[in-house]
Amino acid sequence: MSAKAKNRATSIGLPLAVGVVLVLLWQMGVLNAAGGLTTMQLPLPSDISVALVEKGTRVISDATITLVASLAGLFIGCGIGYLCAVLATMAPRWGRGSLTVLSALNAVPIVALACIMNRWFSSAMGSKIAVVAIVCMATMAINAYRGLNDLQPFARDLLKSYAAPRNTEFLKLRIPNSLPNVFTAVKINLVNGMMSALISEYFSKDTVGLGFTIKTCMKMGNQKATGWAYIVVAALLSIVLYIVVTLVEKRVLRWHASHR
């Protein structure tokens, strides 16, 4: 128990300690000096904090909007991606093409995707969710497909020797086996999803959300600190979500090699 507690302490403490040192160096102007950057190009943490406080409750409402868009898109995109992976596993000869189609969609840059989705959806939120969903599909599909198919060689033989029906094989073997990959995909998609939500907000009809404010402020010389404050908020949100997913993963995947 104490070893576990110690382990947890280091996994939070270490990056935190490094973070504190980094922020201190940054505040002291070391980062700016090292890169030859002005405090407009890379505002100091104190400037960013002041800008954040100045925005007040607006930050919370903007963050909520972006969070809702990216989470809704994440669920839909991961859902479709996983379904395609299941399809591709059940009918490998015919289903695998769906993976190619999904990953081809990933080659449409978010900027173009956002403009297309703006045409499709009259609601700004709808088009944001669609963008995030499309971006998340392929990562989930490819990862889940691997998880559903990379089985331990003896496991299938064992089920076969029990004459288990295909459904059982799916439920008891393939789906659990895919879980680590699903978590990997969700973790990648958390970041991609949040990022694509931000970018689609650059072009969204709404004048709210983290992305809208980041774009607007970054274009003005006297508001860059506010832009950075919003980037910090977006990054913090992603990290919190990431930690939540990691904790869930630890709980769900106790049996797996990577967590033993």
Partner: peptide, 26 residues
């Protein structure tokens, strides 16, 4: 791993809009 993971994540969250001027400066 413990130190790098959160920072890789943070790096991914910096949009090009914020990043580009810094990289151009460098």
């Amino acid at each position: 791993e413990k130190i790098a993971m959160p920072y890789l994540l943070i790096m991914q969250m910096i949009p090009i809009l914020g990043l580009a001027p810094i990289i151009f400066s460098l």
